[in-house]
Simulated assay, not measured.
Amino acid sequence: MVRIKAGIRRARSLGLPTMWGAMAITYKLACPLSQQNGLGARIVTSAVFFAVGTGLVVHVRRALLRELRDVRRVAGVAQSALLRPLPARLDGLNVAAAQLSAEPGAAIGGDLYDVVGTEYGVRVVMGDVRGHGLGGLDTVAAVLGSFREAAHDEPELAAVMRRLERALARRLRERARAERPAPAAGAAVEGPDTPDTPVTPDVPVTEEFVTLLLLEIRQDGAVRLLNCGHPSPYLLSGESVTALARADPLPPLGLFPLPADLVVEGCGRLLPGETLFLHTDGAEDARDTHGRFFPLPEVLAGAIEEQPQALLGAVFTALLRHTGGSPADDVALLVLRNDRQRPLSSAARPGSQRPQPASGK
């Protein structure tokens, strides 16, 4: 049935060009006027062929627009499957996220994020695949798929990160096998540097890595973080904008194995009314025509009282204005605002005071 419908669509797409071509040939061969050399005959002949050409151009344009709509619809489905829409509220947190691909015409790029509610707290992932655009989609799918399972299965945040590391390693091995298949049994492939040495398909052909941030917000507001080469989130509290993490990040995932002793950083508490702003490096590294970096902390300070959706809009508007509408890298933004009610005894609870995070840029 599908093949029949596809055949009907192909027949329809070819029908109009065939009809226009047949009209032009019939006029040239059968119409006596087309054989004359007078000015009037030439004008009529030109008009006929102009009409044929115009009809073909209009038909091709409509076909291309129809194909573009289909491609955009497929891209939208792919985006929903990979970067699925986040809930507006999750376990007392107000959530908003958006992303912008640097590749023209692409609905998604190499940035990834997700937020899930688990029995261990709200867990967040944000990452940036090496490069940008469509080339990193399979890596995005592998990392997000692993996170969505591990976030519910693993009690410890460090174990979630190790699951993501294994998922990325599997994907790189699969790509290596696809790009450089193993030789037949007993065969050796000679190369300029390693003669008579068989090619090992498990060695990646090209280097690939992912900067990755794992965040956990527990019911009492305690924030725990693991950072593999990703920009630190910003904490928006009162009138201040500060970098949340204090410890140096680990190397990006995929460059080196994770250390045996993986220490999760405690970052105090996210108190009611406070906001966490997560981003990829495409935001802070964006430059204007004079080479100046995008002043993200200043923009956040100017919109610190906004709700998450309005805060995203303010940052994206300022970013596009700064880059002239054409950012050079993918950009993903994620906002988490604590709208939980403040416990009455929170001020008197031991350890409720927040350690002062390091200042942002």
Rank of each mutant, 00 (worst) to 15 (best):
L244T: 01
P249K: 04
V264M: 02
L344A: 10
S326Y: 14
R246D: 14
A358L: 11
L296W: 09
T242V: 09
F277R: 09
Q341T: 11
S240R: 15
S240D: 12
E306F: 15
Q341D: 12
T280R: 06
D248K: 14
K361G: 13
A247T: 11
Q353H: 13
A347T: 11
P357G: 14
L334Q: 01
G238P: 08
E306K: 11
H279M: 02
N338Q: 13
P272S: 03
G268P: 06
G273M: 04
V299M: 05
D329W: 14
H279A: 08
L270N: 06
A332E: 03
Q356F: 14
A243N: 09
F256H: 13
L271I: 07
T323I: 15
S345E: 14
T242R: 12
D330Y: 02
S346P: 09
E298Q: 08
F316T: 13
E306S: 12
P249A: 11
A286F: 01
D288G: 07
A347N: 10
R321L: 04
V241D: 02
T323W: 03
V315D: 00
E284Q: 11
L311R: 12
A303T: 03
A310M: 03
L300S: 01
F277Y: 04
D288N: 09
L320S: 10
R321V: 11
L336Y: 08
P327N: 15
D248Q: 15
